[in-house]
């Protein structure tokens, strides 16, 4: 006798059946999946163009089954702008880490939002430079040890971590700004909702949208994957509060 099994969970169409290069316990892999699911659910895979950054997610174009650019460090919002202005029918997103979006590319980040460019940014904040081996990021927390802040980040010397979501919320061109995390199942479900809203904001032509995602980097934090999820909860969230900072409804 044959048993008919109903398929209730499968790999999203937009996520390629390949092994990623991400470390065990890394948040990037979760976000790639959320992105792929969102693109599938909105039915936009065939008109979506992504921009990969410089950093741990530089090879994102190998994981998502959509057209993609690989941009210079920090310049993804400018590349996204050029693409969208030539072909406004496309759904365009940039995927950027904290070095990319909050340090070398802050000018592009601020101005893409100020212009209300109809693109979406997925901003991965893991408070460290992962790919180059764990150096201090613009979002590194006070006292956090990295290879270039070996005694812990000293605010007197290095200034303060940047809250990009709050910063961009002040700009009129930004239509949807949220901060989420991917360190437990509940947060992941909320993250998915925010990503979807961000894409919908773009598709409806309402302006710029950005989702900041607190993401675990066990490798550069020198923690186990489980400890890393706790670190997000206990260290990152107090400084980087989650929530929707701006939604199109509220204007």
């Amino acid at each position: 006798m044959q048993i008919e099994l109903e398929k209730i969970f499968e790999r999203p169409r937009t996520l390629r059946p390949v092994t990623t290069h991400y470390c065990p316990g890394c948040g990037h892999g979760i976000v790639a999946r959320l992105l792929a699911e969102t693109i599938d659910e909105l039915g936009i895979r065939e008109r979506t163009v992504g921009i990969a950054p410089v950093g741990c997610s530089v090879l994102l174009y190998n994981y998502l089954d959509v057209d993609m650019y690989e941009a210079a460090h920090g310049r993804a919002p400018a590349v996204a702008t050029g693409c969208k202005r030539v072909n406004p029918k496309l759904v365009v997103f940039s995927y950027q880490g904290d070095g990319d979006f909050a340090s070398i590319g802050t000018a592009e980040a601020v101005h893409v939002a100020a212009r209300g460019e109809k693109i979406t940014t997925i901003f991965i904040n893991n408070a460290v430079y992962g790919m180059t081996g764990g150096q201090m990021a613009p979002t590194t927390l006070e006292g956090q040890k990295t290879t270039t802040s070996p005694l812990g980040r000293n605010l007197d010397q290095t200034g303060y971590p940047i809250r990009m979501a709050e910063l961009l919320t002040t700009l009129d061109g930004a239509a949807y700004i949220a901060r989420v995390s991917v360190n437990n199942p509940k947060s992941i479900i909320q993250a998915k909702k925010a990503i979807r809203k961000a894409f919908e904001t773009q598709i409806r032509g309402l302006g710029y949208s950005m989702v900041e995602i607190l993401s675990q980097c066990p490798t550069a934090w020198h923690l186990s994957p489980i400890e890393a999820t706790k670190w997000v909860e206990e260290k990152m969230k107090p400084y980087y509060p989650l929530g929707e900072f701006k939604t199109p409804e509220e204007g």
Binding site: R75, A78, A80, G82, R85, V86, V110
Partner: peptide, 22 residues
């Protein structure tokens, strides 16, 4: 016509625009 925030951004907008076929 788009006035970029800098020449750095302008040339990268060109990168995106040329890649989209403009």
């Amino acid at each position: 016509y788009l006035q970029a925030e800098s020449e750095v951004a302008a040339i990268n907008m060109l990168f995106g625009a040329a890649g989209a076929g403009g």
